[in-house]
Design a protein around this nucleic acid. Structure first.
Lengths: 235, 235
DNA sequence: ATTGCAAAAAGTGTCGACAAAAAATCTGCG
DNA sequence: CGCAGATTTTTTGTCGACACTTTTTGCAAT
């Protein structure tokens, strides 16, 4: 659905989208070299627009580059994932605070409706980690929009979106966490409905802290996928 | 002094630095068109590395771009400046919190020493806005380093540094504010010395809130430079 | 004189090419 | 057989060129 050649969009812009997708899909794994000739051939474009896309992902901390050595996909050690969650806690906490000041009744209703749908669906088929994971991103994005702060929105939805997507791969969701996340989302919406900035920020921060702690636990107890079990991380 | 051809750095990297400086110096004013041919000629480089630098500043929200229309320096309306301060409050608050957990005795001593020097200097020549403005940036950067969080550091010292620099031009510093900022810095250092994360975050947030409110006031009461006096802000 | 349209100029987006550096390969020696 | 050095190959960084858009200029008609 994104394949159509839109004149209003540039090759460099679509290269950014495609490269982002390649990374999120795991085709380019963490630490892998981002070869300009190879990707240019693959995308059927020249290196100039590709390089612009690479520079942008570099600016987003998704790629790391050393002059003359090329770019590589960032390697998210457990320590780095924790640091990213700390940033999220700060920014999304403020997002919730600002949203509580400016959210409309209609938006509160939309959030409530979304939660209700999720609850109904979950009572049918159980709290699947897949469902929660999909909706979680929408939930956070929606609240960001409610903050009416273009810089907070840009940060969460553009700058950090890819990085957060990479972090999610480290999060081995367990069903219990899916249910807890649902409950926490409810608390956040309640605080927003009350137009209580302090409570909204606190609820959001606790929510993200809980995600982080779950992540830390899953790293220490590797199981299904992507478990690098070498080294325990001394720094 | 920056003209020497350093082999370890690329033309694109120095183009980023030079373009940043041009914008911060006000040679390219907010809203001004960023002409690729003109800047390329001025920097003595081709458009390719210049475009990479432009894309990076775009990613940092310093430039805004529309496809086929080119890039322009962001216009920081009072509303946008406030939004940026909100982001700063969130991120720097968390920086202070994390720094309080991890700061060393030596670093606390360095901060205290810096404040003492500033106090001594100010008792000689008074609290100049220039002195405070210069040291303020160092103060915040230093504490960011103490957070030991590379993403928080990168955010404040790279991503947002230029944008914050642009915001500073909107801040018409008054001597009273310079003194108050000094006092607030002292409170932050006290909290860091106590290893009190809650207090450190609170003190930092209050400090940035105070800066923001001073900015809002100076916008409503235009004096020397760049005073947009339309609208009082209804939200 | 002003408005509308057409032609020219300038600018952006993209490409291919080249030099220098880094990586890979091959070779010779211990 | 392994390792160090030299050579080839690949890749990065940069440049100039071209097509297509946008903008500006010029001209004519109402």
């Amino acid at each position: 659905m994104l394949d159509e050649l839109d004149d209003s969009t540039t090759v460099a812009d679509s290269a950014l989208a495609r490269l982002t997708q390649v990374i999120l899909d795991g085709e380019l794994k963490p630490g892998a070299k981002v070869s300009e000739p190879e990707l240019a051939r693959r995308f059927g474009i020249s290196r100039a627009p590709l390089r612009e896309a690479i520079r942008r992902l570099e600016e987003r901390s998704v790629l790391t580059r050393a002059p003359r050595l090329g770019a590589r996909v960032v390697v998210l050690s457990p320590a780095k994932v924790e640091q990213i969650f700390v940033v999220r806690e700060a920014v999304e906490g403020m997002i919730a605070r600002e949203a509580a000041k400016l959210i409309t009744d209609a938006e509160v209703a939309q959030l409530r409706e979304s939660l209700a749908r999720q609850k109904a669906r979950s009572e049918e088929i159980g709290f699947s980690t897949f469902l929660t994971r999909e909706l979680d991103s929408d939930f956070h994005t929606f609240i960001a929009q409610c903050s009416r702060n273009e810089f907070l929105i840009k940060f969460l939805c553009e700058d950090y979106a890819t990085l957060i997507g990479l972090c999610r791969k480290h999060l081995r969701q367990v069903p219990e966490r899916a249910y807890r996340a649902f409950v926490e989302h409810g608390r956040i919406v309640d605080a927003l409905a009350d137009r209580d900035p302090d409570m909204a920020e606190l609820a959001m921060r606790r929510h993200i802290q809980a995600s982080r702690q779950m992540m830390v636990a899953s790293v220490q107890d590797p199981g299904s996928e992507g478990g690098r079990r070498r080294r325990r991380g001394t720094n």
